[in-house]
Each structure stands twice: as C-alpha cells, then as structure tokens.
Design a protein around this nucleic acid. Structure first.
Lengths: 213, 213, 213, 213
DNA sequence: AATGAATGAGGTTTCATTCAT
DNA sequence: CATGAATGAAACCTCATTCAT
C-alpha cells in the first residue's frame, strides 16, 4: 500500500539514498527551508531512520557538503593528474572537468557554491576548505607558469593568490551562466575562460601591466 | 543629554532604521534564520511596528534588496558616468567604486551577493536584475573596446556575454577575498582585476586565442 | 489629501457614523473578525476617536446591539400599538413590521439574530432581552386569543410560552429565507406565517390536538 | 490503576478525541475565540498533533461541522425511515429524534445551529447543506400531506418551501428554549410543535386561510 | 532494521489599545 | 477636537527531534 517497500537494504545503500535526497532538497529549498520530512520521503525511508544514520539536520548537511565536495575534487583532480604536462594544459583539463561536473550535477554544484557558503558555520567552513583547495591548485599553476616565463618580473605571492581568486570566481560565474543559458557546453565555457584568463596571465608575466591614467 | 531613546520618530526615519537593522540581520543569519524579533530589537522598535511599515518578512527582505541594489548601482553608475572616457578607464572607475562599496558596506554586499541569490524567488530575481544591469554595462564596455581594436576579429555577442560574466565573477570573488584578507585595499583589488582582465581581453581582440592541445 | 476631511462634527453625528460602520462590519465579519481599524475607516474617523467615544470593542458592540434592538422594537411596537384591535390583526401588523425591517436593514437583522446571540456574554444577554420582549408580546397575544376562544380548554402558561417560541422561531427562519430568496416580499412572508401559525393556534384552542399513534 | 494518561493511541482514536474537544470548544467560545491551544489541551494532546491530523483550524472546524451534521442527519433519518407511515407520524418521529439529539448533545447542536451558520464560508455552506436536507425532507412531508388532503386547494411549491422553513425555524427555536428551560422534555417540545404546526398545515390545506382585515 | 506516534520550542503575524502632540 | 506613532499579548502554525514498539 502506498510506496513499494524496499526493506532491509544494507546501511551503505540507505545512506546513499538519503544523501542523494538531501542534495536535491537542499539545492532546491536551501538549508533552512528543506525539511527533514521531505528528505525522508524523497529517500523513501522514515524520518527516524534518517536520524539513526545521520544524527541531525546539521550533520546531514555537513555530510552532504563533504560528499559532494569530495566528488567535485575527485573529478577535477583526476583531470589534472599528469604532472608532466604544461600548466595551461593542466588548467584546461581542470576547467573542462569542473564545467562538466557543474552541468551534470547542478544540484550538487548549487549546494556547494550557494547553499553551503551562505548558511554560516560550520557549513561555510566545510565548503571553503574545498574551494581553498581548488584555489591553491590554481595558484600553483599560476606560480608555475610565472616561473617558466623567463624575462618577466616576479609576481608576489599575494598577487598569485589574488589572481587565483579571480580565476576561480570567473569559473564559478561562468558555470552558473552556462547552466542557465541554453546551448552552452562545458567545453565552450572552458574555452572562453582560457582565452580570457590565460592571455591575461601571460601579459601580466611579461609585465605588460595596466595602470590607471 | 542626547536622547537615549528617541520615540515618536517620523515614519521615514523609522523605516530607514528598520531596513538598516534588516540588512545586518539578513547578512549575518540569512533570510530564514534572521528573526523578525531580532530585527525589531536591532531597529529599536517593537515587532508590530515593523509589520505596520513593511508588511511581512518577505516584503521586508525584498525592500532591503531593492534599497541595497539601488545603492550599489548608484555608486557604480556615478563612477562611470563620463561617456567620453575610454572603456578601460570607465571599467577601472567602476571596479574601484564597486570594491570600495563592498569594503565599506560588507553586510549590504553579503545580502546582495549571497543571501538574495540563494533564497529563491522573488529575491533571486530582484538581485539578478541588478547583477544583469552591471553585467550588461560591462558587456557594453567590452563591445566598445572590441570595436575600437582595429585589425582584430569580430567577437560574437555570446562571447561578449560570457566574458562579461567571467569578469563580473572575478570581481565578486575578489571582493570576498579582499574583505576577508587583511590589508587588501579596494584599489589593489581593482588593479589586480584590471591587469588580469583587460590584458586578456586585449589579446582576445588581437585574436591571440588559446586553444587546447 | 486622501479622504475629504469632515472636521469638527458634533459628537452625536460622529457617534452615529461609527455605529453605522460597526453594524456593517459586525454583520459582515462577525464580532471577532471585525477590526477596529476597518470600522474606524468605514466611519471616516481615526481609531483613537472611536475609543474616545465608545471606549472599547466590547462596548462598541454592546452599543450597536442596543441601538439596533431598540430600532427593531420601536418599529414593531409602533405597528401593534392599537390595543383595541383583535389579537390576530395585531400579530399581523407586528409580523409585517418585522419582516419589513429585516428586509430593509439586513445588516442590523444579522447582527441581532446571528452575531449577538453567537458571541457569548454580554452580547447574547443583550440580544436575548430584546427577543424576550418580542416573545412576551407574542405570548400575550396568544393568551388573549385563548381567553377569547370560549368553549376551548385552558392552555397552560408553559404551553403559551412554548407556542410563542415556536412562532418567533418561524418568523426568524422565514426572515432569513425571505432575504435570500429573490422575489419574496415581507407581506408574503407575513401571510405565510399567519396562515401557518394562526390556524394552528386556533385548532389548539378548540382542543383539536394532535397526538401520537 | 486505569491508565491516567493513555499514550500512543491509534490515529483514529486520537482524531475522535480531538473532534470531541473541538466541538466543546467551538460551542462554548465560537470559531474565532476558540484556541487551538485549548482544544489540544482538552483533547489531551499537544498542539502539533492536532495540526498533524487536522491540518488547520479551518479544516478542523469543517471536519467538526461535517461530523456533527452527519450525526444529526443520521439520527433523524433513522427515525423517519418507514416510508409506509403517514406523513404526520413520520414528522413526529423526526421531531422527536431531533429534540432528543439537541438535548443530548447540546454542544453539537450549538455548533451546527449557531457557530457554523454565523462564521461565514466555508462553514455556513457546510451547515446550510445539512439544514437544506432537513428542510427538503420536511417539505416532502408537507407536499405529501397536501396531496392526500382531498378537496383542498393546491399549494404552490414556494408555499411548501416557505412552510418548511417556518416549521424548521420553529423546531430550532423550541430546541433552544427546551435546552435552557428546566424540565422541558424532548417529547413535550415535539408535541407542542406538532400541535402548532400540523393543525395549521391541515387548515391550510382545507383552504381555511387567514387574510388581513 | 524500521516506523507510527508524539512534542518542545520558536517563528510569523494580527489586533485591541494607548501615548503624545 | 483629532490623530500619527507605537506596543503587549496572544494567536496560528511549523519543524527538528525523540519515544516505544
């Protein structure tokens, strides 16, 4: 009567169902507006079971953020794994992987980029950790490129950090735009960003700087 | 000496106090977690007065978003007003105004950039309207620059839109980073972004494009 | 600006406006749902003035009931004033006056018949007083008729009271029905009731009683 | 000994308790003045459970009206079930059942006759449906009697409707009077009404009509 | 392993009523 | 005389969370 009952599933399976449901719910309604009732129903289990496995709404959200962050990081890390490749190719691979992920799992991306960062501690911290990791990776690439660019001036570490922030921000913004603009592929978004960013970085390193007046 | 408690103020004054309080509260806790109780207390009035003037939590948040969006737009618009100036100088002026605003009114910026966009309709739409306006302005500058760059290849409208998204995203990201990194000035953030972005755009127009492999 | 200001009217006039507004509001929304705000606005005055003159919502409602009850009683009393006329003609005149009043002032009738009786003390008591007066008058007529009917059996006082209740209830019900059935006149309603009631009473007095089995 | 507090009852039982409590509360205070807090307490449960099962105050009141209307209708219908009996005996049985119900469940009767009809849509409509059903049944009996009365004049359908309204109004009024007058039995009230009404109807059919002047 | 039954705590909203001019 | 400004109190409703089976 009612839903088909799938009883006695192993814990790991049940937990995955719950986290999947939670991702959807948190992405659509936000942390506060998402209700444990809806999540349990989406997951096809009763509420007490959610509590038995995930303990509280806060822990559930944290678990969601952690899992999704790991997934995104894994996808990107896998793409950029070749340490011998030149930095621009590694950046390209990473961007492609990132835009593909954002397009393929929009709820996951929404949770990471919007909900987690918007709803204070401890969620923001959890999300920041992942973002920092990506930013640090990007900063590494920029530093690498700057060291390879002979004859250029040195770039301070803070400059590198700032540039990485800018690049990551571009990617985040483009991901949102790509997701809501019909017909924009991950590849196209990545290409736009490479053109925009890498040339700018290149000039920077050749010390062709822009200055006011 | 100095009224400790100023009672019977005219409506306009009270409304401003309430909106100020609401900006703080929404920025710190988010739309849902902010309580009308706290907002009323921050504003130094009773809850019913907030409802008498602003009608509901939703309308209050909407009013906040509208007021803050207007304020940000006004500041930027004022900075870029000179239509005779070259596009890079106008962009520079706009960025400087923007980073200054974000640094000076971090709660306002948080509400616009995080809370409004994260909490669904009708708030997201209200915030999107403002962001679109800024993005359109940036796109205008990019288009202008592209037309001035002789010998370059044409840039499609979608390219321009994408680049504007990227640039705006960079600015948003840098604003957040500047606000939480001690010692970073608005001018510095703006300079980083100009170097990063404008040169990239310049190369783009000279059709020095990056392409994979 | 806004409403035309009619200032400095004599108190009696203002009070009448307020009571008129209150009758409408109480009839339409009921005692609780009617708001002092709406009543003040309907009356074209500010809320504090309502309180200055009528003191509280409860007193306002009481004043309304009293005024309307007086008005209805006055109308009926005026109709049945001729003490020399036979009881059936006096009843007829009273019914006609009553149905006419209910049709002409439906809000007043609603307040008296529904709202006052439904909302507990002290309102129910106030309305009961008026209803009792009418019922007593009807009982008087019945008693009179019964004494005139020679050869009949005596009717106990309680029978008379019960019959008066029945007759008054018929009238109340018919008034509601007449008001919501298009094309039914006060005269028609009164005629139906006379036919129904007076003959029944007549038979009763001739002791042609109905009994079960 | 004997569970002082019976916890974890099945839903159906709890729902009944809640409806019972609501009948009491609505009868005593009216729809608006009755508080969900009091109803929950009367029912011996917490407020959230009331909402879980009945959804809202409005739905609760509607459910109450429906249940009580069904109960009253059922009682009356059961009494008049014999279609072979002559109309006066069927009326007598129905009246007896009705007065008995009103005496035995005064809160239910108050809710149906006063509160539901006084508090606007959708409650009034719900109550009107039941009253219309009863009125239609009475009208049927009157029509039946009129057809049986040979030699009389035809009674128009509107006359029949009006007479039914009058008879039902009598019954309502007498029920209230009986309930608040000590020592009046249901049988007595029913007898008074039969004497009053049936003879009047009889005369009507013999066309012994009362007319003014 | 899984759930129907139940609630404490807190949120938004409304309204009669008063103060100070 | 008249009112704009202001509030205490209480209502409806929701939700994360737990108990008992």
């Amino acid at each position: 009567m009612g839903a088909v009952k799938a009883r006695r599933l192993p814990r790991a399976v049940r937990e995955r169902q719950m986290l999947d449901a939670a991702v959807r719910s948190f992405a659509r309604h936000g942390y506060q507006a998402a209700s444990m009732d809806e999540i349990a129903e989406l997951a096809g289990v009763s509420k007490p079971l959610v509590y038995l496995y995930l303990n509280s709404k806060e822990e559930l959200f944290t678990a969601v953020i952690r899992r999704e962050a790991q997934a995104l990081l894994a996808v990107v890390a896998e793409a950029v794994v070749d340490p011998g490749a030149p930095p621009d190719e590694r950046l390209w691979a990473g961007l492609l992987a990132f835009f593909t992920y954002a397009a393929e799992y929009p709820d996951s991306w929404t949770v990471l980029n919007r909900q987690a960062r918007t709803h204070g501690e401890p969620f923001a911290g959890e999300a920041a950790r992942m973002r920092d990791e990506i930013t640090a990776f990007v900063a590494g690439l920029i530093g690498e490129a700057s060291r390879e660019a002979r004859g250029g001036v040195a770039i301070t570490e803070r400059d590198v950090a700032a540039l990485a922030q800018a690049l990551v921000g571009s990617a985040e913004s483009l991901a949102g735009w790509a997701n809501e603009t019909p017909g924009v592929t991950a590849k196209e978004a990545a290409a736009t960003l490479m053109n925009f960013a890498w040339s700018g970085l290149g000039n920077l390193m050749k010390s062709e700087r822009w200055s006011p007046r």
